[in-house]
């Protein structure tokens, strides 16, 4: 039996006094690759933030094993100010924070090499001196993935990693995510493309403010479950083809 890395024990999270997520129960096993799906407002991002410890639980709890589990988190792009005057290299180098902290020394040559390597892995020549304001959405997402590479964490949480990103970038970044999974890392990603999930993600957690289903992706993404997810989310959004 696989080891539980993060266990959600009857987790309920409130925002603005209203429960946006309730009664989530289950676990992310070590080395698993799980998609989180649901309509807008279903609580997907809230769940990731709870796992990260960015939001407190109103009831229940999040149990990380070990307690100081190393987790890397990719936020939605909209959460980051693209006009901020920092360079690509500086953003990628942030991934080294846990090793060097706020005051630790960064050996210039060493971190430049690591940044260049990470950028190369996401398909860039050395663009470390370029301002992030000059990047397209897809290019910026590659840079954030390079930052994840430097974090080198055991568990990786991705919040809509392919939203607004071109097909070539999606293909390259998805390949990188699959590679992380093969290396034994635990992956949890908020996604909307059902075909992509069925093809690449063995497990799925389907949400609609509460847990609709959690398990094997093909079983979870049944028509019955999807109808429940759309009907219960309170969202006007409807499933369009293979997207939720």
């Amino acid at each position: 039996m696989s080891e539980a890395l993060v266990t959600l024990d009857n987790l309920t999270v409130k925002r603005g006094g209203r429960a946006v997520l309730s009664g989530i129960h289950g676990c992310f096993e070590r080395g698993s690759m799980t998609a989180i799906m649901g309509a807008n407002g279903a609580g997907k991002s809230t769940l990731l933030k709870s796992v990260m410890g960015l939001l407190p639980s109103a009831q229940g709890r999040v149990i990380r094993t070990p307690h100081d589990l190393d987790i890397a988190y990719l936020p939605q792009q909209a959460a980051i100010d693209h006009s901020f005057p920092v360079s690509v290299g500086e953003v990628v180098a942030m991934g080294a924070w846990q090793r060097v902290g706020g005051f630790g020394a960064l050996k210039q040559r060493e971190w430049r090499r690591q940044v260049a390597e990470a950028l190369a892995r996401v398909g860039f020549d050395d663009i470390s001196k370029r301002s992030i304001g000059a990047l397209s959405t897809g290019q910026f997402q590659r840079v954030l993935f390079a930052r994840l590479l430097l974090q080198n964490a055991e568990m990786v949480l991705l919040d809509e990693p392919f939203a607004g990103v071109d097909a070539a970038t999606t293909r390259d970044l998805l390949a990188l995510v699959c590679e992380w999974h093969q290396q034994g890392r635990t992956i949890v990603a908020v996604l909307h493309d059902i075909n992509q999930v069925v093809r690449h993600f063995p497990a799925t957690l389907l949400l609609a403010g509460r847990q609709i289903a959690w398990g094997n992706s093909e079983e979870v993404l049944s028509t019955e479950h999807l109808q429940q997810a759309l009907g219960m989310s309170g969202s006007a959004e409807q499933s369009e083809g293979s997207r939720l």
């Binding site: 410890g53 960015l54 987790i71 936020p75 959460a79 980051i80 942030m94 846990q98 706020g102 005051f103």
Partner: peptide, 22 residues
């Protein structure tokens, strides 16, 4: 000079700083 790194990071991406326990 001393607080530059955490200050800039807190300014640019405060959520990231919290996720790395900064």
């Amino acid at each position: 000079a001393v607080i530059y790194r955490p200050l800039v990071m807190e300014c640019f991406d405060p959520e990231f700083l919290r996720t790395v326990k900064g």
